[in-house]
Design a protein around this nucleic acid. Structure first.
Lengths: 215, 215
DNA sequence: TCCATTGTTGATCGTATGATCAACAATGCT
DNA sequence: AGCATTGTTGATCATACGATCAACAATGGA
């Protein structure tokens, strides 16, 4: 009993404790949403008094904003790492569409959607949201520009187009947050639409039904 | 003084009072968001005790859900009324894209986005959200099917396509909630994408730079 | 061993929420 | 005028939030 229920938390150095708190906030956000990030909630998960969380994060709005950035930045970093391993712009764009639409990132999508709303009353969060949107747009724009340089894509304004594609992805994934069924060929439709927008060859961005060809 | 500051609210019949409360909730939602719908907040706007609001709306979740439905249903009704006045499917689809992307409905967009998040913890709201999404999809699907019948559009699955277009619109308008600049030709890009998706002629869905041709 | 440093606690304050309900008062019928 | 009906009040309860801070205790150097 004395080992399972700890009366007082083990004393740790600030960096370690701060990391624990950030990680707890991250988990809470992914499981229950950004608005579940609460002094008491985070404290309970770390196994620590609420005051300690407040000590490391003087205001909760900041913690929420930082947590949002942490989650999204990690995703961007991960995805763009995968992008780098692909041979050319067409493959990268196709991979992007397929990956982001796949449905395995609903938790991150929920965080995005909630951040859009919370940003109205949390200025720090709003700034982070804009920053991360810029990051995503930058990644996507890079792919489009590479495609243009390689002669595979054609568009006048890669930046604007990148925003457009991002918006479409956001809307469609947000939709899947509420309604799973209904849309059958989500990926296919989007790929077709984007092909038209970037002037790529028909089918060049379709998610390849690679690997498993059965059922 | 006795006329400006009323000590006790005028006695009204239930239907009238209920309508007042609904209207107040509607205004609050559009101005401050769905989460600002509060017993005391609504009561203050109506000029009434908080208990009275609770009397008419036994639980707040229900009021939030009803308010969402009211706002969105009104918009759908309004827009589909305008659609009926247009000559053909191409004009209707173009009008839809133009109207919904125009930026004059940011308040409604904010309500949508917040509803997606709040629906996670408000089951009644979640049901309403799904219902209104169905309504929108139904309107859009109707336009697409008409277009197919008229030989102007071509697609295998109008229902799925309608979902797709809706998702794109949602994402792009939500984006404009946070970031105004950045995208120049929002409407044009989207129109081009949709043209590709429905197999319509290039330019047939472009927002006509009608009326004012200067500057 | 003593003690200064510093990580940690938990109570406390002010505020806000939804919900409940006995008391009140306006209304209109008899 | 008297009275039952019913729309309305406002205090109250339980809960949850962010924030603050004096007190506490673990740690490691002197």
């Amino acid at each position: 009993m004395s080992s399972t229920t700890q009366k007082r938390a083990r004393r740790k150095n600030p960096a370690e404790r701060a990391a624990e708190i950030s990680e707890a906030a991250r988990e809470i956000a992914l499981e229950q949403g950004l608005s579940a990030i609460t002094l008491r909630n985070v404290a309970a998960r770390v196994g620590v008094a609420s005051g300690l969380v407040a000590h490391y994060q003087p205001n909760v709005d900041g913690l929420v904003a930082a947590t949002f950035s942490s989650i999204v930045a990690a995703e961007i970093h991960e995805v763009s790492g995968m992008l780098a391993a692909l041979p050319g712009p067409s493959e990268r764009l196709a991979f992007l569409l397929e990956t982001l639409m796949e449905g395995g990132r609903l938790d991150v999508t929920a965080v995005w959607v909630e951040a859009w709303t919370l940003g109205r009353r949390n200025e720090a969060l709003a700034t982070c949201v804009r920053g991360q949107m810029d990051s995503w747009q930058s990644v996507l724009r890079g792919v489009v520009e590479d495609g243009i340089a390689a002669g595979q894509f054609e568009t006048e304004d890669p930046g604007s187009l990148a925003w457009q594609i991002l918006g479409m992805i956001d809307g469609l994934t947000a939709q899947s947050l509420v309604r799973w069924g209904g849309v059958s060929d989500r990926g296919t439709h989007l790929a077709r639409a984007v092909e038209g927008m970037v002037g790529a060859a028909r089918g060049s961005l379709q998610p390849q039904a690679s690997g498993k060809s059965v059922s």
